[in-house]
């Protein structure tokens, strides 16, 4: 518990630093893309010759596309926790200038055995949701992101305990048995906070922190699954996790952004 607290504290400090670092140069931003805005709008001025005042509206395009990647942190969990064999693919698609539709899917295999019991579990999961980019762009085509998101997660798991053993050191003797194949579904809500950085052209590295809150009960009187695909530990109601992704964006389309003239300036015109 203390470890988790320390970790979240550390990460929030680190996140704070990056946000600050990102925000500082934001002052330069406006000067950078103003000329582009004005040149585009010139055409409009020509056609509407009646307008005596310069129109402040502008339109520019942002690179849109589908980003596809994998979660590398699952490789590390598989090394540290041999019973967790997981694979997660991530994808997102740019819907608006700062809004992304996000999907994650994967499967989990959970082979486990010790002196007391053997366990087999396998299942699949999918999460659907949105990410919102909080970071101001230094230039229109910047793709680095600092984002928050929300997801709905669903997973289906089949598990069984081929054999278990209850021992009594005092009485001696063992009681053996098994738990038959059982299907279980889980639903959860996931909150995400993370960074994505374009380290090479269209190639991204990113990490994110996740808080998952389980919505239904997956425990039974007989057994609790060890791992719920996509969620994590089957015995917990809420899970704190992280993801480390490598991804590639396929730039398939452009998003048109229309910047309206500021209202303050409109008010000034009738005064003249």
């Amino acid at each position: 518990m203390i470890r988790i607290l320390l970790f979240s504290l550390l990460s929030s400090i680190l996140t704070g630093i990056t946000v600050q670092a990102q925000n500082k140069p934001a002052v330069i931003k406006d000067t950078l893309h103003k000329p582009a805005a004005d040149t585009l709008r010139k055409k409009g001025i020509d056609t509407t010759a009646t307008a005596a005042v310069k129109a402040k509206d502008s339109t520019y395009f942002l690179p849109g596309g589908i980003r596809v990647g994998v979660d590398l942190s699952r490789i590390i969990t598989a090394i540290y926790y041999p019973y967790r064999k997981e694979f997660t693919a991530v994808a997102d698609v740019r819907l608006k200038s700062d809004l992304y539709g996000a999907v994650e899917a994967g499967y989990t295999n959970t082979p486990y055995s010790d002196d007391n019991y053997t366990y087999k579990g396998s299942g699949v999961f999918i999460t659907l949701g949105v990410d919102y980019n909080f970071m101001k762009r230094l230039y229109p085509s910047e793709k680095n992101m600092f984002y928050g998101g929300i997801r709905y997660g669903f997973s289906h798991l089949t598990y069984e305990v081929p054999s278990y053993k209850i021992t009594s050191p005092y009485w001696g003797g063992n009681l053996t048995g098994s738990v038959p194949k059982t299907n279980v579904n889980a639903h959860w809500v996931e909150l995400v906070l993370g960074l994505k950085a374009e380290v090479l052209k269209n190639f991204f590295l990113g990490w994110s922190l996740r808080e998952r809150i389980l919505l239904n009960n997956i425990k039974t009187d007989e057994f609790t699954p060890l791992v719920m695909p996509g969620f994590g530990s089957g015995s917990k109601k809420s899970i704190f996790d992280m993801q480390y992704t490598v991804s590639y964006v396929f730039p398939l389309y452009k998003i048109k952004v229309h910047v309206k003239e500021k209202k303050e300036k409109e008010k000034k015109i009738p005064k003249r």
Partner: peptide, 24 residues
């Protein structure tokens, strides 16, 4: 800017591993 990411990513990865516990 990239150097910040390059430092942060491994740090968080390490912290993430420490935060987990092997329930078995």
């Amino acid at each position: 800017m990239k150097t910040i990411y390059q430092i942060l990513l491994p740090c968080l990865l390490l912290a993430g591993i420490v935060a987990c516990e092997n329930e078995t």
